[in-house]
Amino acid sequence: MLARTADNLYWLARYVERAEFTARIIDITSRLAALPKAYGGASGAEWESALVALGAHERFRKTNEVADESAVLRFLVFDADNPSSIRYCMDRARANARAVRTALTAEMWQGVNSAWIEMLNIERAVAPFERMTRDRIDPALDAAKGMSRDFDGLAYRNMLRNDAYWFSRVGLYTERADNTARLLDVKYHVLLPETETVGGSLDYFQWTAILRAVSALTAYHWVYRESIKPWLIADLLIRKKEMPRSLVSCYDNLAGFVDAIGRAYGQQGPAQRHARAVLLRLENTSLDDVFKTGVHEFLSEFIEDNNKLGALLAEQYLLN
């Protein structure tokens, strides 16, 4: 396969996944912002924290003064220069898909292209309003989630199990691991073991929001069969393999897919070794270890390791 094709497939999957994550963050943020003050909502900080979770707060500050609902929604949905906006992700996803049409099935390309066309139409209809509201941008969230669902499903159902599929999956799980880690990191202060006594039930809605953001509220109850405890949320999203968006599950997949590439090409290298090492560490880390290291420190290190996998893959396969 052309090295450029592998690169395009990797980024295509990442941007599709990122568009969905942005949509999910907007979802939970507007939920939190709608809570009465007595329940921890309406502090005005919810939209700011959405920007932080998406790593977009600094860029936002450059062009905006106040992080209110309208400004943040416009920035996260339509801003064509913001790398985590839905619009930007869709533009990049489509450009990458267009460059590798020959490596995708016709349905996959049409799925991405249709979502992109739909997004243009939504933008035309909604962007002229002075105030952005959750209602107005709702179709954009649906478009982003729909694109991701179609892309993921069609890749799984239709793609040949060869290097094109594996590189695409590596992109998807790398992005997903990054998103989960960032989501946990921005909320880590409410996940500490002592917060139950400190914050009390005020944080309950923050906790459920985290679970909702990764579609894990029901899963939590199935796995733990008890009321929501913050440290168990951390446990679920870091260490539980049966939870599809947990860090360990993402690395279980990543290690498998980079291994498949190595096997097909008849050579293992630094990328394979690195993915396996990260997986092993996640598997062997207890929750106590995480808290001893510090949740923030642990997640920062993970995010760095995750980025390193991308760099190693590029070195091994794209720049030869």
């Binding site: 396969m1 052309l2 090295a3 450029r4 094709t5 592998a6 049409r101 020959t102 290097d163 590189f167 590439i261 090409y265 396969y317 794209l318 030869n320």
Partner: peptide, 23 residues
């Protein structure tokens, strides 16, 4: 067949190659 751009190609010893994930 592969859809290539100029940057995907190189000529070495008067032979044309494309850059792939396997060299």
């Amino acid at each position: 067949v592969e859809l290539v751009e100029g940057s995907d190609l190189l000529v070495r010893d008067d032979v044309l190659y494309m850059r792939t994930t396997q060299g």
